[in-house]
């Protein structure tokens, strides 16, 4: 199907809101799942949007955007991927194949936005010197434009050229590639899981990793059930660690190490 002008408009607005949401209220979170979901609603195919969002979500589980490090922007990837999957009618694997490179390219624009705001910072400095609080406030708020436009413009442009270009890509795609993309879509979640395990103090909690695996792989307990099991274990741990005698490992160190490690690794 061809994309309608109002769909392009709504998806562009979603892209603008996406980054603003992340740095303010955090309702849609800085992860792809909910953006795929909403893009799916806009495109009239909720299921496709959800599956695209979910697949990307699993790839970036552990990739935090904190401390100023840029991460692959799979939120934009989810929006573009969902839109193109519906336009092309080629399904999820095609969408993932597009969303990943889009997400990787978008990192550059995130860097640009964070850099551009330095310009406003220096204007703020100048107006502080003059005691002009109104202009100080105004120049801080201007930061919203580099942030929002860095996402909205690329999405708008990609959707605008979308119809014809997507059809050309679809027609040119050989069979082995779509077969390969299907397999890649299946295994890409390992990336998110591995990054997450690197971020968390996994070695200290490895027994719980095994318990979670056993519950799901052997006992076939659904995810919500495993989460409840984990909650029970967490409560037990919290109560037990309250006793001074059992509370002698240096937790502070472990956290610090994990955190810095993550930042160091993801800054590129």
């Amino acid at each position: 199907m061809a994309i309608a002008w109002w769909q392009i408009l709504l998806l562009t607005m979603l892209a603008f809101w996406m980054i603003i949401d992340q740095i303010t209220v955090g309702i849609l979170a800085n992860y792809p799942l909910l953006y795929g979901f909403i893009a799916g609603i806009i495109m009239g195919d909720v299921k496709t949007g959800l599956v695209v969002g979910a697949t990307l979500q699993l790839m970036v589980l552990g990739v935090g955007t904190y401390g100023g490090a840029s991460m692959p922007d799979f939120m934009t990837g989810a929006i573009i991927g969902t839109a193109y999957a519906v336009i092309s009618g080629k399904g999820i694997d095609f969408a993932i194949g597009l969303a990943v490179p889009v997400g990787l390219l978008m990192v550059q624009l995130d860097v640009l936005a964070r850099f551009t705001n330095t310009f406003f910072l220096h204007r703020v400095d100048r107006y502080i010197e003059k005691g002009d609080t109104k202009r100080v406030a105004r120049n801080i708020v201007y930061g919203v434009f580099p942030w929002g436009l860095s996402r909205a413009i690329p999405v708008f442009v990609m959707l605008l050229v979308g119809n014809s270009v997507v059809q050309k890509i679809v027609n040119a795609m050989p069979e082995w590639l779509s077969k390969g993309l299907t397999a890649a879509g299946g295994i890409l979640p390992v990336v998110g899981i591995a990054i997450l395990l690197r971020f968390l103090p996994t070695k200290r909690f490895v027994s719980y990793l095994i318990i979670g695996f056993l519950a799901a792989a052997y006992l076939k307990i659904p995810m919500l059930g495993v989460a409840l099991l984990g909650l029970a274990l967490a409560i037990i741990y919290y109560k037990q660690s309250g006793h001074p005698s059992k509370n002698n490992h240096d937790q502070q160190d472990t956290h610090k190490g994990g955190f810095e490690n993550a930042i160091g690794e993801y800054e590129d």
């Binding site: 589980l61 979670g212 799901a216 495993v226 984990g230 967490a234 919290y238 509370n247 956290h255």
Partner: peptide
């Protein structure tokens, strides 16, 4: 302690993720 307990819960869920979503 709360942070640790939360991490523990997170790690358990990740363990279950491996066989279900990959």
């Amino acid at each position: 302690r709360i942070t640790d307990a939360a991490i523990l819960l997170g790690v358990t869920v990740v363990g279950a993720l491996i066989p279900t979503v990959v």
